[in-house]
């Protein structure tokens, strides 16, 4: 009788253990995940990031467990050089961010996930002790008071292919202001060309010679590595709208009409969420467009975005060095220089 009682107790014990195992496992699992944020990425039309605001504390790591609900997405932190993490549908990927400075950071989607891809942005608020994020110095277009929406003024364009190598021959003839960096930043190639044309010292040079010299001035402000970085940034972030060759014929804007000042209609508000009234970006390979813009103006356009044209604002995403590289690369379209083909 005692043995049977013992056996019954044992059976009940085993049943209890069997029932408890899944619960215990779940409890252990959730304890490991206590600091993990599960983040779902969806196309902006379907809701974008499942969490758009993350609160964090300085030096405390944030574990993110991410997956995509539809297409390939990616995540990266704006204004940092950390490479992005790709998020594939059906797979979980984990990553950890640690912030050592309090402030507001932007996280954004890094892979094109539709025409509204750039709307996939969220913020990370980092609080706590420490030196706060340095506020960016005011961009040059603000301090110089450049109207970045003014149409470019280009009176003459190069008649043949410019060559920075040829332009280097005239380096010794150029006045000092021409090779100054502030002149480069604040002046458009067309304006600098007009100033140089008016110089009496350069009277012997032909128009084309001066264009070559201007191209050389533009080229010496950057390095091949920076240009390569600019090319990569352009391909990843800009080419889908502005086109791989800068013609403004990217895949995302293919159905939009070409910009034409004649059909500009103030009654129709452009920039609605549906994209109605959007036009294609301007053709950057047309020297009449880009040669009339200064690097500071281009930087301003990139930081601020297109204000209702569908061009996103990249201020919270790119570092100033990245924007500078991008601007240097953009002028290659105007000069007609071919990009580096061997870039992957």
């Amino acid at each position: 009788m005692k043995k049977e009682f013992l056996a019954r107790i044992l059976v009940i014990l085993f049943i209890l253990i069997a029932v408890a195992i899944p619960f215990a496992g779940q409890w252990l699992f959730s304890r490991n995940r206590i600091n993990t944020i599960e983040l779902h990425a969806r196309m902006p039309e379907n809701g974008g990031w499942s969490i758009e605001r993350i609160d964090a504390v300085v030096d405390e790591p944030i574990h993110l467990r991410m997956t995509s609900d539809d297409v390939v997405h990616g995540i990266a932190i704006g204004k940092s050089d950390l490479p992005g993490v790709d998020i594939y549908p059906g797979e979980f990927v984990e990553t950890t961010f640690v912030f050592d400075q309090p402030g507001q950071y932007t996280f954004y989607c890094t892979r094109w996930c539709g025409p509204n891809h750039w709307r996939m942005r969220g913020t990370i608020d980092v609080s706590g002790e420490g030196r706060p994020l340095q506020p960016e110095p005011q961009p040059l277009f603000v301090t110089l008071d450049i109207d970045i929406d003014s149409p470019p003024i280009v009176e003459t364009v190069p008649t043949e292919q410019v060559s920075a190598e040829r332009g280097a021959n005239f380096a010794s003839l150029l006045p000092t202001y021409a090779i100054d960096r502030t002149t480069y930043l604040s002046t458009s190639p067309a304006v600098l060309w007009m100033r140089l044309r008016a110089e009496s010292a350069l009277f012997s040079l032909s128009d084309q010679d001066i264009w070559d010299a201007v191209a050389w001035i533009w080229q010496r402000q950057t390095t091949p590595e920076n240009l390569e970085n600019g090319q990569r940034l352009y391909a990843e972030n800009c080419a889908a709208c502005h086109g791989e060759t800068g013609k403004g014929d990217g895949v995302m804007v293919r159905n939009n009409p070409v910009w034409d000042p004649g059909n500009h209609n103030m009654d129709k508000s452009s920039g609605s969420f549906t994209g109605e009234g959007f036009v294609r970006p301007r053709d950057s390979s047309d020297p009449k467009n880009l040669l009339g813009t200064s690097p500071a103006l281009l930087e301003g356009k990139i930081i601020r975005g297109g204000m209702g044209t569908g061009m996103p604002y990249w201020g919270p995403i790119f570092t100033s060095q990245q924007i500078e590289n991008l601007v240097s690369y953009l002028f290659n379209f105007a000069w007609g220089f071919t990009p580096n083909e061997n870039l992957d």
Binding site: M43, V71, V72, G114, A240, M252, R254
Partner: peptide
């Protein structure tokens, strides 16, 4: 050429695969 999101192309019978982002 990808027109909207990241697409790929893999060809049956051949060892051939491509992957394209829009704009690239």
């Amino acid at each position: 050429v990808s027109m909207d999101v990241v697409h790929g192309l893999s060809l049956d019978g051949y060892d051939f695969e491509l992957k394209a982002d829009p704009g690239q």
